[in-house]
């Protein structure tokens, strides 16, 4: 399939407008997974329509907010609402009624089961007839799995990078350079702080991993006293980490502490630090 041609065919526009046929929806949802350019076009069109919708904004009456909050509060207890959610929630999908998706998934499931059975039969026959060949097939499928895993990992990494970028490009965010301290002068880290919301994000990607059995711990210096700002846990795979919330701090510092952190910082284990102003 020529993906550029597909993008200019108008099918994506039909999809975001909610008028694509069931087949088109299935096709696009698969293409979104495969082609970043399709995903990007869908996102762009959705943003356009969101703006279009926004241009029709209207203010609901004042009292409605309390009414809705009251309705939300009582909803979970009433049986009527339980039935309502059971029947209604499946309708909610980004663009298409889920029934089509379900049936598509059903077909996909049936197809994969059929494939599985077929490959099982095929394998059995091969084991009897050509043991060597079946070993080779197993080898190839292992390689394929490895490749697939790699692709998934790359996709997740790309998603994480995008999230990090979104956070870092917020205009209200202050960028604080954490410089190396003492014997750690060659190291540095970055901290992003939004004093208005108190959000603190830490980026220690350029630092070596903490020593075995140890962890980096962030401290905020508030009114001259160190306050625990959370543990840095690189195992999550995030590019930058959301730490504890601070509305006020003169300084941020990172120390090496035992796993799980310490109640007070081990001062001679300070690696990087930076002032907020």
């Amino acid at each position: 399939m020529n993906i550029e041609e597909y993008i200019s065919s108008g099918t994506i526009e039909a999809y975001v407008l909610g008028i694509a046929t069931t087949d088109e929806v299935c096709e696009i949802e698969q293409l979104i997974e495969q082609y970043p350019s399709v995903r990007a076009t869908v996102a762009e069109q959705e943003a356009l329509l969101a703006q279009y919708a926004q241009s029709h904004s209207a203010n609901p009456p004042e009292h409605l907010k309390q009414n809705i909050w009251a309705a939300i509060q009582e909803e979970p207890n009433s049986t009527a609402s339980k039935i309502a959610t059971q029947t209604e929630t499946p309708k909610i999908s980004l663009t298409e009624k889920p029934s089509s998706k379900k049936s598509w998934k059903g077909y996909a499931m049936a197809a994969s089961i059929a494939l599985l059975i077929a490959s099982g039969i095929c394998n059995m026959w091969m084991m009897q007839e050509h043991k060597k060949m079946s070993a080779e097939i197993a080898n190839i499928s292992a390689q394929e799995k490895k490749l697939l895993d790699g692709t998934n990992k790359a996709l997740i990494a790309a998603q994480k990078a995008k999230e990090a970028l979104d956070i870092m490009s917020l205009p209200s965010l202050k960028k604080i350079n954490l410089a190396g301290v003492g014997t750690h002068a060659q190291h540095s880290g970055m901290l992003y702080w939004d004093a208005a919301t108190g959000n603190v994000f830490l980026d220690l990607n350029s630092m070596p991993a903490a020593p075995e059995g140890k962890q980096y711990q962030l401290w905020a210096i508030v009114d001259g006293k160190p306050v625990d700002a959370g543990m840095y846990d690189p195992s999550s795979g995030d590019m930058i980490f959301k730490m504890k919330t601070f509305f006020k701090a003169e300084m941020f510092a990172v120390t090496i502490e035992k796993m799980g952190g310490s109640p007070i910082p081990t001062m001679d284990q300070m690696v990087v630090a930076g002032k907020t102003s």
Binding site: A43, A50, I92
Partner: peptide, 13 residues
Amino acid sequence: GRLYTWMLNIARN
């Protein structure tokens, strides 16, 4: 997709 798009679609549907 974005949360905003999801919510708009719920409202629209």
